[in-house]
């Protein structure tokens, strides 16, 4: 043998995996706290942690099999030889810790615990048919009337919608923290900018009770405003809302 044998390869791989675990568990919350300028650590979520650990183990195995010699070295750590004391000690530790680790996994999996269920929901269900044909009555007004409508809508928005959706329509109103289903951030290009304005008319008028069950209406705090606001007021709010959020409604495709 001319090549130097890397008899401790297996230990190095295990060491790297442990380092990865320690980084994810203790270092990364601090790193992300600094990177994202938060006032609190950002712990790695458990599902993500599991995936990173699986990937770490796989990466270690991939590395150990990049050449035949490495793979042989990797496995030969487990073979008996008259190596230094440290090697036989590490071998013993490894022999004991594997079954213990298996036992620990089984223990932690079968502990009765109650994690909150994953509550998936569809944010943009299909617009009901009776709302499809509606049109903003102020759409064809002259610019000055439209400006007044926007201004009136903004006043209504700041009065009735602001407590949850925020002064900037960013979903950060003073009540927003209290709702587990957070009020929607209208500045987000994935929200009101992707729908036609009738969609908003439907949402404001019918609120949570009007949602289909795939959109978890039981968790949504969106009120149904049909008893408290007139249709004209709702249209004005929509105009003011788009203006406040700084986005445009999706334009309807011509059907002809």
């Amino acid at each position: 043998m001319v090549n130097k044998r890397r008899t401790y390869l297996m230990i190095w791989v295990i060491f790297a995996v442990i380092c990865l675990f320690l980084f994810l568990k203790y270092a990364s919350p601090k790193v992300f706290q600094i990177l994202m300028a938060k006032g609190h650590p950002m712990p790695t979520p458990s599902t993500l942690m599991m995936w990173y650990m699986i990937m770490g183990v796989l990466a270690g195995l991939v590395y150990a099999t990049t050449s035949n010699q490495k793979f042989v070295d990797f496995l030969s750590f487990l073979l008996p030889d008259r190596g230094p004391v440290i090697k036989s000690l590490l071998q013993k530790v490894l022999f004991v810790s594997f079954p213990v680790l298996v036992g620990w996994f089984v223990y932690s999996w079968s502990l009765p615990g109650a994690a909150s269920p994953v509550e998936l929901r569809i944010q943009h269900p299909t617009l009901p048919q009776n709302y499809e044909k509606l049109e903003n009555p102020f759409r064809h007004e002259d610019a000055e009337t439209q400006r007044l409508c926007i201004e009136e809508g903004k006043i209504l928005f700041q009065t009735y919608c602001r407590p949850c959706h925020g002064s900037k329509a960013d979903g950060n109103g003073p009540f927003a923290n209290a709702f587990r289903l957070r009020p929607i951030n209208f500045q987000d290009p994935g929200t009101i900018a992707t729908v036609v304005d009738n969609y908003l008319f439907w949402r404001i008028k019918e609120g949570a009770p009007g949602l289909p069950s795939e959109s978890t209406p039981w968790d949504s705090a969106m009120p149904s405003w049909k008893d408290d606001l007139k249709d004209d007021e709702i249209w004005k709010i929509i105009m003011g809302e788009y203006d406040t959020a700084g986005v445009m409604p999706r334009q309807r495709e011509k059907l002809e």
């Binding site: 793979f71 042989v72 496995l75 073979l79 022999f95 594997f98 079954p99 213990v100 996994f105």
Partner: peptide
Amino acid sequence: AIIMGASVELWFIARLRRFPPKEE
């Protein structure tokens, strides 16, 4: 689980020792 883990481990090591890996 511990007994099963230990047996798999022992089997693997016994096999490894009987057929030690050789470089192709």
